[in-house]
Design a protein around this nucleic acid. Sequence first.
DNA 1: GTCTATAGAAGGATAGAC
DNA 2: GTCTATCCTTCTATAGAC
Lengths: 211, 211
Amino acid sequence: MIKTRDADSHTKEKIFMAASEIFEEKGHSGARMQEIADRAGINKALLHYYFRSKDQLFKAVFVVLMKKMFAKIISIMKEDMTFKEKIKKFLDEHIEFMIKNPKLPLFLLSEISQNPEFSESISETVRLRDLKTMLYEQHAKELKGYGIKKSDMSQLMVTIVSFSVFPMAAYGMISVLMPEFRERKKFNEYMRERKEFASGLLFAALKNRKK
Amino acid sequence: MIKTRDADSHTKEKIFMAASEIFEEKGHSGARMQEIADRAGINKALLHYYFRSKDQLFKAVFVVLMKKMFAKIISIMKEDMTFKEKIKKFLDEHIEFMIKNPKLPLFLLSEISQNPEFSESISETVRLRDLKTMLYEQHAKELKGYGIKKSDMSQLMVTIVSFSVFPMAAYGMISVLMPEFRERKKFNEYMRERKEFASGLLFAALKNRKK
DNA sequence: GTCTATAGAAGGATAGAC
DNA sequence: GTCTATCCTTCTATAGAC
């Protein structure tokens, strides 16, 4: 049994997991190397052995979490379906994804806004051009028929994403305003109801514009 | 001329303004007392003279910014208008408010989510109960007529707020995905177009539900 | 009220033993 | 590969002169 190698990758993995959690919770500047080490059940020095510095550890985590977020969105947009089918599927899957990763959106929004420079290095990794091309194809094929101008596409996209992302990013605020949602189960129900609410709203609006 | 008193309140004000800016930009854990002092054009020791500790300075700022945000929302909701009029006015004024305070929403969302305990002490200050009562009155009077269930009220409210708040909070992300918006002027145009887009979407949807 | 100087704590990073 | 011990920088906070 190759003990060293097993231990090696296993430890690195443990550190990475711990770092993801802590960074997601507290952000880059709020996170402490000590706390990451504690959660990983290892020593502070090992963090530097595997990831040299806090910044590099953070970047490794950030890239993976960024991909995680967009992989979900892109995989759905890619599929060959009508616009309505895509919306339904997106709301369903993305809201379930958000429920499983509740800290993710606010973390990404915060860190990107504080570090736009290195977020750009990621835009290649995430293959965003594909996303745009797909959207414009869909527009040419189908959305014109709804009376949606090309210039409204970005409004529409931001709106659709906001249906699932915003309540999750605003969870803290929402649970202060509506204390019933401090119970996570109740809030998850709320999010699931949102699938119907959002598609209902969008489709009702489109119906009125359909030529 | 009472020089001491003038200087007193003036300095405190300067510190407070500087602190607001820095905290909004970098958050509690990212902000540095030194940087705040520099921006205020005074010495670090003076910060502690006026506000004892970083935490207390932060809390002072946080409460004011929180009120600033909600004052805007509540003042509009309070007025005696139909639901549609309120929506239109809200979108108009709140989007203009966001353009003037672009860092505010993400700051509040982030800090609340990291500090839910002391955010609750604020919920009294901000008079949120009033907001709820007003919403339920509007529902009883008018929204039932659109076929909106009482249980959908919170979905609707979150959605309306998200129209103006989400793109602002997601500005960093958006400007990575759509580089044309790195130009702030372009993005502000986008936000202003959003007034029409959002009310159009909402009203079209309501029209379909009107009995 | 405002400054300089400095204490004191915390956090990131490294050296060196095993 | 992992740990202990420690260095060094950064940051908050205070003491004390003016």
